[in-house]
Structures are given as structure tokens and as C-alpha cells.
């Protein structure tokens, strides 16, 4: 892991936190052990300002144009997008399943809400993920404390607002402890309407 200090250049607008982009891709037939998950995930940029964010974001492929089984992650600098990371181990995530064709727009909107500190839950947000799959795409937002009900409810309600979700949208929550137990990101979730 290389250590580098990302600074805010003069004239640019600082973000509340620094964030790192990650990309992962795997063969769906292979079970996702922690070991090969770590091998298949790569970070490709850290941003500290609004302008730095756009410089990277504008040059990466839109998630809706990806094929196969891949994920983009944008996480606070220092937090690995892994269930076992110190910042994630007591946490969980909200999941929104998207029909094909919506991922790029929703991904951009959830990122802008996170970078702009729209969730108002202190240090709770860890990062966001867009997961490209065959039948559907999945948007997730990870927070630090799965049993902090105030924060999880506020994150859910903010998501509904910033993504402009229809009121009947199904929202699912899964703790990372449960994901570790059944070695699955998106199965056996708790469903809220």
C-alpha cells in the first residue's frame, strides 16, 4: 500500500474528507474468498477537492457501460472496502437494486450526496459502491455502526431524497457480520418499504 499525501491545490474547493476510488472485478463462478477479493481490488485515485474528484471521475468509464461482474467503490481515505476493515467490522449497508440502465445516474447522485456531506450523520458514512451484475445493478452505502438506528434511518431517508426514489422503493439493510457469515453481499437482507 503506497502512502501519499493528497493536498488541496490553491483555488480548489476542499472536501470534508478525502476519498479513494477502487475497482474490482471477478469471475462470478469462483467463490469470493477474502483472499481473492483482496487480490482483485485495486485503488486508482485519491481526491481531496471537488476539482480533483471531477478530474478523475470524468475520465473513468460510466458504471452502466461496464460489462460482467464488476464494482466501483468510493471510500473515505484509509477505509478499505472490505467487511473486515476496522471501520467497517461493526457496520452494514443499505442496498438499492436498480434495473439495468439506471446505474450511472444513481451512482453519480449518491457520490455527490456523500462528497457534499448531505447525510448529516457525523462520521458514520464509510463509502459507496455500485455493483454491476447480469440481471440488475446494485447501489450500496456503507456505514460504521449497524446498530445505530438514528444514523441508519437518516441515511435511508436521505437516500430516498437525493436519489428521488419512488415512495414504494424497497430498501434493504445488511450488516457486514451477516455478510461474513453467509459470505454474500446481497442475499438474506432485512427489507424495509
Amino acid at each position: 500500500q503506497k502512502v501519499k499525501e493528497v493536498m488541496v491545490p490553491p483555488g480548489e474547493h476542499p472536501l470534508q474528507y478525502k476519498y479513494t476510488f477502487w475497482y474490482s472485478r471477478r469471475t462470478p463462478s469462483r467463490p469470493a474468498s477474502t483472499h481473492n477479493y483482496e487480490q482483485n481490488i485495486r485503488q486508482f485515485g485519491t481526491v481531496a477537492s471537488v476539482e480533483q474528484f471531477w478530474r478523475i471521475y470524468s475520465h473513468i468509464v460510466r458504471p452502466g457501460d461496464l460489462t460482467g461482474y464488476s464494482d466501483f467503490h468510493l471510500f473515505k481515505d484509509g477505509i478499505k472496502p472490505m467487511w473486515e476493515d476496522e471501520a467497517n467490522k461493526n457496520g452494514g449497508k443499505w442496498i438499492i437494486r436498480l434495473r439495468k440502465g439506471l446505474a450511472s445516474r444513481f451512482w453519480e447522485n449518491i457520490i455527490l450526496a456523500m462528497l457534499g456531506e448531505q447525510f448529516m450523520v457525523g462520521e458514520e458514512i464509510c463509502g459507496v459502491v455500485v455493483s454491476i451484475r447480469f440481471q440488475e445493478d446494485i447501489l450500496s452505502i456503507w456505514n460504521k455502526t449497524a446498530n445505530d438506528q438514528f444514523s441508519t434511518v437518516r441515511i435511508r431517508d436521505t437516500l430516498r431524497r437525493v436519489l428521488n426514489l419512488p415512495p414504494n422503493t424497497i430498501m434493504e439493510y445488511k450488516t457486514h457480520t451477516d455478510s461474513l457469515k453467509d459470505n454474500s453481499s446481497f442475499r438474506n437482507t432485512k427489507i424495509t418499504v
Binding site: P9, G11, E12, H13, P14, L15, Q16, V50, E51, W54, R55, S58, N109, L112, A113, L115, G116, E117, Q118, V162
Partner: peptide, 21 residues
């Protein structure tokens, strides 16, 4: 301390700034 909050429009407007190219 104070938090740095930006709304969606502010962030989108910065996208076309020469600094963001």
C-alpha cells in the same frame, strides 16, 4: 467544528471549471 457541505448544483457547476479539466 464546521462541516464542508456542498449541494448537488454547486458540485456539478465545478465540473466545468478549468481546474477540473
Amino acid at each position: 467544528g464546521t462541516r464542508i457541505i456542498y449541494d448537488r448544483k454547486f458540485l456539478l457547476d465545478r465540473r466545468n471549471s478549468p481546474l477540473a479539466q
